[in-house]
Design a protein around this nucleic acid. Structure first.
Length: 308
RNA sequence: GCGGCGGUGGUAGAGUGGUCAAUUACAUCAGACUGUAAAUCUGACGGCCUUGCGCCUACGCAGGUUCGAAACCUGCCCGCCGCA
């Protein structure tokens, strides 16, 4: 529709090459980068999250994370101990996009966290119920079938959303119901789109993906991943959200001597492959993604999009 | 060469007479998920189809015992360990 701000979205599975491509494209089209990555957003988690190498600089009177010569927003900004979530992300990212638009920069939204992308691009209205840790803890102690009964009583339709055994989702649904007094199933809404987005997806074949993942893990190890995890493990508990990321969680057994490094690496690669699969389940449903295989193809798509 | 142990589906590894096409995990495939999402969760997973408590092929190979074997017996092949 008419005058929505234009943005470019670069998405794709883990290790598909989003970072490199987005840097090239953003430079070509006077863009700056906003990350849509639920793990690179944390400070201190660098090597394992494949965070672009960069550093904080003062530019235009503002502290910015500069990588590859370009500002990256929503990267390296959240304290690992802080609870970060979907709603925070949506708000921050939307603000940033508008800000860039006002400065005449083309926003490049880059990342593989499909839920974050979707929430932002489809302008979901997330139920305004903040996590209630005490409640969650209490419900966590009950068994799933009791929780399920409780949910059925209050909101039968919600079961279709949460599933029958997904405790975490059932608890969230109950949390929303208790706090708002309304059904969870009635609160999944989306508003009018906020942006005019061109979605570019990096296509990659399964063998290519396997190869890239394997290579990347080796690279990470070479760059000191083990040391990074070791240090983080000293500081933080394994339950911490970013500690549960792939490339970190697998080291729990390694650091206690229960697993060898090569086994750990194999496990990491397996987990990344499985993760990529889950990402694709989201992406496959979105028929508006333009899947490309080369930078040139992407460039052309962007050109014609901007000319519209 | 003798003695012991073992050979199970893509892998690891249960199962020692029937309800076993064979627990489970991993892998694989498909999928769900609006405040943890790199999380959490679900289904399928020998083949065939007329989808049936159906048929066929399967637990190293070949025979045998039995109404009935992955399971018991015999021989053979292979692997690991111990003694030579």
């Amino acid at each position: 529709m008419d005058k929505l701000p234009k943005i470019i979205v670069i998405l794709g599975v883990t290790a598909s090459g989003k970072t490199a491509l987005s840097l090239k494209l953003a430079k070509k089209f006077k863009g700056e980068i906003i990350s849509a990555d639920s793990r690179q957003i944390y400070k201190e988690f660098n090597i394992g999250t494949a965070k672009p190498t960069g550093h904080w600089l003062i530019a235009e009177g503002e502290r910015k994370f500069i990588a590859g010569g370009l500002p990256h927003y929503l990267v390296d900004t959240v304290d690992p101990k802080e609870d970060f979530n979907l709603a925070n992300y949506k708000k921050l990212a939307a603000e940033k996009i508008n800000e860039l638009g006002q400065k005449g920069k083309l926003p490049f939204l880059v990342g593989g966290t499909a839920l974050y992308l979707k929430t932002l691009l489809e302008n979901w209205t997330i139920p305004a119920v903040e996590p209630n840790l005490a409640l969650r803890r209490r419900l966590e102690n009950k068994n799933v079938s009791d929780l399920l009964d409780e949910l059925k009583k209050n909101d039968p339709e919600a079961v279709a959303i949460t599933g029958y055994s997904n405790k975490r989702r059932i608890i969230r649904a109950l949390e929303v119901i208790y706090q708002t007094g309304r059904k969870f199933s009635e609160q999944r809404k989306s508003g009018r789109p906020l942006f005019n987005a061109l979605k570019i997806g990096l296509k990659i074949t399964p063998p290519e993906l396997t190869q890239r993942i394997t290579r990347r893990t080796d690279e990470m190890i070479k760059n000191g991943l083990v040391k990074e995890v070791q240090e983080l493990a000293k500081k933080y508990s394994w339950d911490l959200v970013p500690m549960q990321s792939i490339d970190y969680q697998e080291f729990k057994d390694y650091l206690t001597g229960k697993k060898s490094l090569s086994e750990t690496v194999k496990e990491i690669n397996r987990h990344h492959l499985a993760y990529a699969k889950r990402q694709m389940t989201w992406f496959k449903k979105d028929k508006t993604i333009h899947w490309i295989t080369s930078e040139k193809e992407a460039e052309e798509k962007i050109k014609s999009f901007l000319a519209q």
